[in-house]
């Protein structure tokens, strides 16, 4: 009795897993086979890279890859540089109005820039930044999530280490750089992975603020490609879809443990 219910549970878990990967396997099938096999399954169907080749040639994907890489790097580096000192101030310094400012900052966790398309578009228009990569990045640079996450980590750094560095004559920025940042390394990795995957996949704001090949990230480029040029050649669209998601997906499969642990670390507050 006990063994058989356990058996059923395992079967159930596997069934759910199969249902969950089925869409992806199906996409892989379509992308790696000629168009006429898109909906026909046959063991003898020839494998091909033609679809990827055609997709790559049909739209400036190389440029889109470059744009996304620039965007993601810009956001990541700027977030680290901007959020670290702020997190330190909230964690280890006394100043008037700390709690109020902290509360004001935390409001961003609920009201995210994604919702404020209209207001942010107007600001970018006033700044003359419409259709630039900088404009895609700007709303996300002061990240309440990043500040909060780093603050929580900095709070766990033993005060004695800080005091010792101070006695050695370390300046404020020196202590931050030599004591706090190295000890928070796992948090930086976690936050970095979350940030990169969020912005690699982000769509609506980049769609609104960009309108040329030179600035469009992959997600927007893919949607333009899939909606206009291709009619309904599913094999090519699916190939393009997999191509744009591939770097992140491959990175995930290679560093699975790191990814999963990072998401967990970023989530536990």
């Amino acid at each position: 009795m006990k063994v058989s219910t356990r058996f059923l549970e395992i079967i159930g878990a596997w069934m759910l897993a199969i249902i969950w990967v089925l869409p992806l396997l199906y996409a892989l099938w379509t992308a790696f086979h000629p168009g006429e096999y898109a909906t026909r399954f046959s063991l003898t169907a020839p494998l091909t890279l033609e679809n990827f080749h055609n997709a790559w040639a049909a739209a400036p994907f190389a440029r889109y890859f470059l744009n996304t890489t620039i965007l993601v790097t810009l956001i990541l580096v700027a977030q680290f540089i901007i959020c670290t000192p702020a997190a330190f101030a909230f964690a280890r310094m006394e100043f008037a109005g700390r709690n109020v400012v902290f509360a004001i900052m935390l409001m961003q966790l609920m009201i995210m820039p994604d919702v404020l398309l209209v207001g942010n578009y107007r600001s970018m228009a006033k700044l003359g930044l419409v259709d630039t990569i900088l404009a895609i990045a700007l709303p996300y640079l002061g990240s309440a999530f990043g500040i909060f996450l780093l603050r929580q980590t900095f709070l766990t750094v033993p005060q004695q280490l800080d005091d010792a560095a101070r006695l050695e004559g370390c300046t404020l920025l020196g202590r931050l750089w030599r004591v706090y940042v190295p000890l928070a390394r796992p948090t930086y990795i976690a936050y970095g992975l979350v940030s990169v995957s969020y912005h690699w996949n982000n769509f609506l704001w980049p769609l609104v603020i960009t309108n040329s090949v030179d600035t469009r990230p992959l997600t927007v480029g893919l949607s333009v490609f899939a909606s206009t040029d291709q009619g309904i050649d599913w094999s090519i669209i699916t190939a393009a879809t997999l191509m744009t998601s591939a770097p992140l997906l491959v990175a995930f499969l290679l560093f699975q443990r790191q990814f999963v642990q990072s998401f967990m670390r970023a989530g536990i507050r």
Partner: peptide, 16 residues
């Protein structure tokens, strides 16, 4: 230390 983060946060979340 707070200034850069706060300026960006207010400019692109609270201001809009």
């Amino acid at each position: 230390l707070l200034l850069p983060a706060l300026v960006l946060l207010v400019a692109f979340t609270h201001w809009p």
